[in-house]
Write a protein that binds this DNA or RNA. Structure first.
Lengths: 118, 118
DNA sequence: TTGACGGGTAGGAAAATTCCTACGTATCAT
DNA sequence: ATGATACGTAGGAATTTTCCTACCCGTCAA
């Protein structure tokens, strides 16, 4: 699959995640929604620059904003990250083979609640 | 965690994966080791450019080369990708919640066989 | 040994990224 | 209405990325 013409959604997804500030923003939002100002205060960077990072994250649908009053609350929207998981999955067997973390899988099961239906 | 000074291994990892050609090279190598020429032939790009992509992948330890005769065989080395998986894991619960793919985890267990080492 | 093949590196052009300082606009308090 | 607050966008400078064409050296066949 060579012949790269236009940038695919996957390209834009990995492109968005390539920037450490943007990954940090996502990690920050794991703790709950935040306003732009709140986010910007966490970074050693001018607010408009944070705004642009947020735009990239918005364009890839990795965050969603909701305007309330004069604030915009940003929240993580993880679904596009399935694209990363999907890309990653053919490689998992490589480290599974040598790290043999079956225990990890079991952790996943346990963490899932064990019971059964969601 | 703002204050970004130097680029961390994770930064370089995501940086390496940001380029679609590099992801395609990795995907190609999933089919087995290849020489530089074999790889270059698959892409609409001059060979030295492919060489540089290979250097980035080498620097992040995502591929390894072995010289045999006058050929260099490149093979995928997936271990650093654990870094991606680790970064991703806090987000998994978001799509797990709505896609409820417990069956996926069970697939993993089944696919792992019971045996073990490759 | 000579020539062809395999593949890395150098230097540079073009394009994309990242960050900044201004500035515009909408919302809230007075 | 007026001013302060919250945030986006514009335009541009400094880097970084990505790709190219030379050019280099090592290996194999004749």
């Amino acid at each position: 699959m060579p012949q790269r013409g236009k940038s695919s959604p996957t390209d834009r997804l990995f492109g968005a995640l390539a920037n450490p500030t943007r990954r940090d923003i996502l990690d920050l939002l794991l703790g709950g929604e935040q306003t732009v100002q709140d986010i910007a205060d966490r970074f050693d960077m001018a607010r408009p620059s944070v705004s642009e990072h947020l735009r990239v994250l918005r364009d890839t649908d990795l965050v969603r904003e909701e305007q309330r009053g004069r604030h915009r609350y940003y929240a993580v929207h993880a679904e596009p990250l399935v694209g990363v998981r999907d890309w990653l999955s053919p490689y998992e067997r490589y480290w599974r083979a040598r790290l043999t973390d079956l225990g990890d899988v079991l952790d996943d099961l346990a963490g899932d609640g064990g019971g059964g239906s969601a």
